[in-house]
């Protein structure tokens, strides 16, 4: 198992957001996390690479509990690619340099090496011909593909997506779904938070339903999207479908 989360909790001041989350992610697996707005999906992802400090629990990544004191947090983060809803491309850098920055700073690559690696990853995302363009010159779908290339360039053990298609119109969102599917064929391990039933159904190996800070259900796409026994889950999907 690449990632095992046990009884993870997180409170902000007096507000408890995560109340004992368990999660397993196997190598090569693509797991989707769904759940109502504000239930703590983003908080969960950010706890796993310690962008947010969890309150308690265990996050066992490659056999080691990364919440233990003495963990090299930056080294941990370098093994986890993170893709955000709002792309978060560095706006003063071209697509190419968005990808090369971490390779130069963190991997210590030469300009030439970093360039070659970046062009390879941009090519995988069908973005090679846009390498010299700046974020403001790219469409939303293109930006997100650059962001994915930027994350992939570090050869992470796993990719986290936090609602990668929510800021995109349906057409652009399809571009992103299709590159994620491509990554799945390449056996990239992924954990993806989404509200988008189309995305979830297209890619998920398994779906996890998070609600009120706990995992309320987990199963295959069919199990979760089908007539689920839990009325809250049925309601959620009935609503999501009418919204989509």
């Amino acid at each position: 198992m690449l990632l095992q989360v046990r009884q993870l909790t997180k409170s902000f001041d007096d507000k408890t957001i995560l109340r004992g989350v368990d999660l397993d992610l196997a190598e090569g697996q693509l797991k989707v996390i769904m759940g109502p707005s504000g239930c703590g999906k983003s908080t969960l992802l950010r706890c796993l690479n310690r962008l947010i400090e969890p309150s308690s629990g265990q996050v066992i990544f490659r056999g080691k509990d990364v919440l233990q004191p003495g963990t090299d947090v930056r080294a941990l983060r370098q093994q986890i690619g993170f893709v955000f809803q709002q792309f978060a491309l560095y706006r003063h850098l071209s697509a190419l340099h968005n990808v090369t920055l971490a390779l130069r700073k963190l991997r210590g690559m030469s300009v030439r090496e970093a360039h070659a690696k970046a062009m390879h990853e941009l090519g995988r995302m069908n973005m090679a011909e846009h390498a010299d363009q700046y974020p403001a010159q790219l469409s939303g779908g293109q930006k997100q593909r650059v962001a994915i290339a930027r994350a992939l360039a570090m050869d992470p053990a796993v990719l986290f997506f936090d609602e990668p298609t929510s800021a995109l119109d349906p057409l652009m969102s399809r571009e992103v779904v299709s590159v994620i599917k491509q990554l799945q064929l390449d056996n990239v391990t992924m954990l993806c938070v989404t509200h988008d039933p189309f995305l979830a159904k297209s890619i998920a190996d398994r779906v996890m339903f998070l609600d009120e800070g706990v995992v309320r259900a987990e199963g295959t796409v069919a199990e979760i999207f089908g007539a689920h026994a839990d009325p809250r889950i049925r309601d959620f999907f009935a609503h999501e479908h009418s919204a989509a």
Binding site: L51, A75, R77, I80, F82, F84, A88, L101, K105
Partner: peptide, 18 residues
């Protein structure tokens, strides 16, 4: 400077000074 860009760089494992 956009917070999300800073967070993206943190998530990559870059240091404060980088």
């Amino acid at each position: 400077v956009d917070e999300s860009e800073i967070m993206a760089a943190e998530a990559m494992g870059m240091s404060r000074s980088q």
